[in-house]
Amino acid sequence: MRPLPLLLASLMLATPAAAQAPLAAQGCVGCHGPNGAGMGSVPGLAGRDRAEMIAQMNAFRANERPATIMGRIARGYTEAEIIASAEYFARQPR
């Protein structure tokens, strides 16, 4: 194995589980808290139903669900990123 892939592989093994979340999911924790546990008035995502989160993100993207900023944020995610994030948060303990 070449040095760079070996270094990257070792870094991935050394990082905490939360840092191994999909990059799109990592963008959510600034408002939704570590592992999506929720922060203040911002609802938690951890342990929520995967299909429900996907539907809500799609509703935000289509301006069918009222929000302060989530409509703009959701439009920046691809369908694959939404699915990966929903799968990640659905697996997190509440």
Rank of each mutant, 00 (worst) to 15 (best):
L45W: 05
R2D: 15
A37T: 10
S10I: 07
L4E: 08
P93Q: 12
P43D: 04
G47S: 10
T78H: 01
F60R: 03
R50Y: 02
P34D: 11
A51S: 13
A80E: 15
A55N: 02
L6V: 13
A51H: 02
A90K: 08
I82H: 03
L45A: 10
Q92V: 12
A9N: 10
P43W: 02
M53H: 10
F60T: 03
Q56C: 05
S85I: 11
P66I: 07
M1H: 05
A25M: 04
G47V: 13
N63H: 11
P34A: 15
P43C: 08
A90T: 07
T68V: 14
L7W: 09
A62V: 04
A19G: 03
G36D: 08
S85A: 15
A25W: 06
P16R: 07
Y77V: 03
P93K: 13
Q20M: 14
A14C: 04
V29M: 14
G71R: 00
P93I: 06
P5A: 05
E79V: 13
E79L: 02
A21Q: 09
E79G: 04
E87I: 01
R65M: 00
E52M: 12
P5R: 02
A86P: 05
P34G: 10
L6I: 00
I73E: 00
Q92C: 12
E79K: 07
Q92E: 12
Y88P: 01
I54W: 02
M1Y: 09
L6T: 10
A55H: 05
L23A: 15
I82M: 14
Q20I: 12
A21R: 07
Q56K: 10
L11S: 02
M57W: 06
G36R: 01
A86I: 14
E64I: 04
A80Q: 14
R91D: 11
E79T: 12
P16M: 01
P3E: 13
M70R: 02
N58Q: 15
A14P: 01
A46L: 08
A21D: 08
D49G: 03
R94W: 05
R61N: 11
A9H: 00
A21M: 11
M39T: 15
P93T: 11
Y77L: 15
A24E: 06
A46W: 03
M12P: 09
L7E: 05
M57Y: 07
L6D: 06
L23C: 01
G76S: 13
Q56I: 05
N63T: 04
R91M: 12
A18Y: 05
E81A: 06
P34S: 14
S85T: 14
I69G: 01
A18H: 13
E52L: 14
P22V: 11
M57V: 13
A17M: 00
C31K: 13
L8G: 09
F60H: 00
A19V: 10
M12Q: 13
A46H: 02
L11A: 09
A46R: 01
Y88N: 03
L11F: 12
G33P: 06
